[in-house]
Nucleic acid binder design. Structure first.
Lengths: 160, 160
DNA sequence: TCCATATAGTCAAGATACTTGACGATAGTC
DNA sequence: GACTATCGTCAAGTATCTTGACTATATGGA
């Protein structure tokens, strides 16, 4: 029944959600490929998402669970994997007998360093592709979206 | 409540990839929740991602595989699920005995209609949160990123 | 102090999404 | 007809995430 209609580029989505999703996936694919190419074979997107919530100085596991938008069991399983890979280590929290502290190992810190380098490379590439002005506008809009889910009367807050 | 000693807000990421990821996840969570609330209990993010590649007029399964960035087996399994849910149907391609055509059922078209409505609602909310100008700049930047991965001649370099 | 409740983390089982490998069927080409 | 490429399926395994049940420690009264 379908003639060529199907072959002539029927419109693909062009709304914020789709664009954000495509852009996010493209970034992650590029970043992950670069990280694995840099020798961090353990690097996956799910793990990267978790690591993004762990500051360089480490954190308590419970704080990590609050920040990430998943269940504590999911966080735990990702931590198990990262600990087994030698990227992180878990220590008992001296101030709370129930808690544990999550900390980067040397291997983990090395990965963070490489990650920073790759991020800069990708960002530089993006700027060269769409221009400094568009890139700045992109970041501004994304920060504004993140900042004001409930308060629409504010400009972008200070860049702390 | 919380002892503030080690809660001093160690910096969380603030780069393009992170911002895109967070924004994308937020959009998808909102969209998915609205769709499920609208009665489309079968709606998941993975399925939504696939449906995004299926135009209203349907498509060939092989074309779908090319568009989506995963394996043909992953596509097939998602199609199996969507077919079982009655959202899609697969017909033999009259022009190619090997191929199949993927088409929306009535139920699927109803979901598309609700999806369009939800998208507009979310977009309207975004505009009210960050302003028409920022929103337009966001879409412009995202489209530019998608358009020119290899050709940077769209905008003058304007470096510095 | 003792007890009730909340919090931090673990263990176990299952669902979903995705991957690789192997395979049969049809199409296109010679 | 034979060779090769494409289309789709079947099967098995991995990664990620979810729910439910459980232990241990902390906290806040009575």
């Amino acid at each position: 029944m379908v003639k060529e209609l199907d072959e002539k580029n029927e419109a693909l989505p062009d709304h914020v959600g789709w664009r954000l999703w495509q852009a996010s996936r493209a970034w992650q694919a590029e970043f992950g490929a670069a990280m694995r190419a840099a020798g961090h074979a353990w690097f996956t997107e799910a793990r990267a998402g978790l690591l993004g919530h762990i500051p360089r100085g480490g954190t308590r596991q419970s704080a990590l669970i609050e920040r990430s938008a998943t269940s504590k069991q999911a966080v735990q399983q990702l931590l198990d994997g990262l600990e087994a890979e030698g990227v992180l280590e878990r220590l008992p929290d001296p101030r709370d007998g129930r808690g544990k502290l999550v900390r980067y190992t040397r291997k983990g810190l090395d990965a963070l360093r490489d990650g920073d380098r790759v991020k800069l490379q990708i960002e530089h590439d993006y700027v060269s592709r769409i221009g400094r002005h568009r890139f700045a506008a992109l970041m501004d809009a994304l920060r504004s979206l993140d900042a004001g889910p409930a308060d629409g009367s504010q400009e972008a807050p200070e860049t702390k």
